[in-house]
């Protein structure tokens, strides 16, 4: 076979390969985006059923969703639980990551292992455990318990993110500040936290979105005041309803924007 033929054959093969790759990616994207596309499209449905045929765009269901007191108060609860649990998760995770990165002590591997353990257990177990303990201690279900469970779930993640972003170069700056007379809390607040800001913000956003979206422990551990996913769960009992599409679309766009923001922060940190 001559060199030209080889190249010719290679060219064809390459073309087929590229075609297959593109086709496969396109097919997967269709599958991945199908539910989101249907959800968003039929949130604008001018009719009672969010299925074809599409009757034309209306913002009616968005208005309905935003006028639904139950959904709105649930959204408020989700926001408070999300922000509160994310804040505490990041603080606890950051402190633990700092302790493990800057000090040496016995049992470090064990501590590290324990701190990430909840990540390997399903939410059902975390929720069940707290439910059993609460009923044992005669504590009524409430948003406090939901918040506690979300910290158990998200703190390991915040810890892992902070741990990954600590590096030895930062130690020198901390030492310099300490040499110049800064106390430990001051070093932490004025040197370490600003240096770690992108990771901390990314961890916060991630914990917030996960808490915002968490259903199972919120369902188990709350009763009268509920979070948004539990309220949406309640809506589902009424069957298919464009109002659910509307609230779902709003949550999707909000969460996607936050997630892209968090990724941008982490990516920027890595490339700089």
């Amino acid at each position: 076979m001559s060199a030209v033929q080889t190249r010719y054959a290679g060219g064809w093969k390459q073309l087929i390969c590229k075609g297959l790759t593109a086709t496969y990616i396109a097919a997967c994207f269709c599958f991945i985006f199908a539910p989101v596309a249907v959800l968003v499209l039929f949130s604008f449905q001018d009719g009672r059923l969010p299925v074809p045929p599409f009757h034309g765009p209306t913002l009616h269901w968005y208005g309905q969703a935003l006028a639904n007191d139950r959904l709105l108060s649930a959204m408020g609860h989700s926001f408070v639980v999300g922000a509160g649990s994310a804040f505490l998760s990041v603080v606890l995770g950051f402190l633990a990551a700092y302790g493990l990165a800057r000090y040496r002590f016995r049992g470090q591997a064990l501590v590290r292992g324990i701190l990430v353990l909840p990540m390997a257990v399903s939410y059902l177990i975390v929720g069940m455990g707290l439910l059993v303990m609460a009923s044992w201690l005669n504590i009524a279900p409430s948003l406090w318990l939901v918040c506690i469970s979300h910290i158990v779930i998200n703190m390991p993640l915040a810890f892992a993110i902070c741990s990954a972003q600590f590096n030895p170069a930062q130690v020198r700056m901390e030492m310099a500040a300490a040499d110049l007379g800064a106390s430990l809390p001051r070093v932490l607040l004025q040197i370490t936290v600003p240096m770690m800001a992108p990771a901390l913000i990314a961890a916060f956003i991630l914990c917030f979105t996960l808490s915002w979206d968490e259903f199972l422990t919120a369902f188990l551990l709350s009763r009268f005041d509920i979070t948004l996913p539990v309220a949406i769960w309640g809506l589902l009992r009424g069957g298919l309803n464009p109002q659910t599409n509307a609230i779902g679309s709003m949550v999707f766009f909000g969460a996607a924007a936050l997630a892209l923001g968090a990724e941008y922060l982490m990516f920027r940190k890595k490339s700089s």
Partner: peptide
């Protein structure tokens, strides 16, 4: 990206 649809809503969308 569809990760960020709400978990309950994702199943509903299917």
């Amino acid at each position: 990206l569809p990760f960020w649809t709400s978990y309950v809503v994702r199943s509903y969308a299917w």
